[in-house]
Nucleic acid binder design. Structure first.
Lengths: 225, 225
DNA sequence: TCCTACGTGAACGCAACCTGAACACCCGCC
DNA sequence: GGCGGGTGTTCAGGTTGCGTTCACGTAGGA
């Protein structure tokens, strides 16, 4: 790795955080470590590192929410989640939140390093995307978009759709992925149903004067950005 | 929905291979499945798909060797390994062989799909370091060429064509090979259709100021480089 | 020079997609 | 039970753009 690469950590356990830091530094990374979701947002939103390691079980937040919040603010950095849980649904939700990989505790540091290196080997496609997204934030609690002063309410399905799109700004999300994200497994969703929801989302974003738009990748899927 | 992305499978177990195929096809991938290392090399070396799922324990070869052999022939496709082994050293050796992810059997198909989608979202960074021209990168997720700051969108067919050409920079790719790569098996493709697509690709590359060109090998095929 | 292979701009049909509106359904409320 | 608001789904008509073909021009080999 020729250029100095920076890594961000968010892990509340002091011992593990120290271990992660020293392991990554030995590997040649410049490390910024945080211990809470709030601290991570402050540190990584405005100045994202090249790769992020996020604990899911933080004292003040869920790591997946942190990831989504960062994605909503235009942070494209690859994310590796650390989770104590084994459940498949937990892992999948991590991916849906915009994560790129996960590790279940306990894990070997050597494996973490290999996975982090693998994430760094790959660069986000749209480097052109600005680091700062002008005030468009998803509020999972209220199922709404917050744009400056105004709050745009969304139905549950609309919200799941937009979240799946906003989790990967600048990247094409396939239609099948969107269906999988917004509808329960095994549901039969008419092609046009997805179209109709996209139209509703676009209209709501447009009416609210949101600075983002949903572009169509014909034959592939959709891009949020 | 026109299937935009192709996936390759190498798995000797008939049942699992079938499951993988149908799961990926449901997800919208065009799937080419093989049952042995030799078959995988024949099928994927000359005409690589967008993502590969390789079993490590094949009857005639080690999946890691297959991956390394493909890499040596310029195949940049992201690889996900399937392994029955739990040992950490096995997993790490998969990464060292040029793999990008792995799954330990048994696994949930939903998890495999999520991981395969995640691999497709990313750009082969190795493209920048390979014989391929630096700064011209194919983005399978977006079906686009990334050239420096700008992203040139391609239609699905254009992308499959260019991918087939760029997989062997400096080598002649026969017209029949290109047709096989870009069109579904058994499709009748008028000669001039290929010509027209080549003209479009050249124009897009030229307009974008790309440092590469597609040369004609009269009576044989085309060379990317 | 003739013949064949390839190049390329334009035109066209059709599938994919967009969208406003109607319809079906669920649920809390009176 | 009847009613109304909110949510999810389907329909119908219009629009767009991909894939294909055509017509004609150009280059290469014998």
């Amino acid at each position: 790795m020729t250029p100095p690469t920076s890594a961000g950590i968010c892990e509340d356990d002091d011992g593990l955080r120290g271990d992660l830091r020293s392991a990554l530094e030995r590997e040649g990374y410049v490390v910024r470590a945080t211990a809470s979701g709030a601290e991570a947002m402050r540190s990584f939103a405005s100045n994202p590192p090249d790769v992020l390691v996020l604990d899911i079980g933080l004292p003040d937040a869920d790591g997946r929410d942190v990831c989504q919040a960062l994605r909503a603010r235009g942070v494209l950095t690859p994310v590796l989640f650390l989770t104590a849980r084994e459940a498949l649904s937990d892992r999948l939700s991590g991916f849906h939140a915009g994560g790129d990989d996960y590790l279940t505790k306990p894990f070997a540091l050597a494996e973490l390093l290999v996975r982090v290196n693998a994430l760094c080997r790959r660069v986000p496609a749209s480097a052109a995307t600005s680091a700062e997204d002008p005030g468009l934030v998803l509020d999972p609690a209220a199922h709404a978009i917050v744009h400056g002063e105004q709050t745009i309410p969304l139905t549950p399905t609309e919200f799941r759709l937009l979240a799946a799109l906003a989790a990967h700004p600048g990247h094409v999300v396939r239609r099948a992925t969107l269906v999988a994200a917004a509808w329960p497994e095994g549901a039969i969703v008419h092609d046009n149903t997805l179209d109709a929801y996209l139209a509703r989302l676009r209209r709501k974003l447009r009416d609210a004067g949101a600075p983002t738009e949903i572009k169509t990748a014909r034959g592939v899927g959709y891009v949020f950005g």
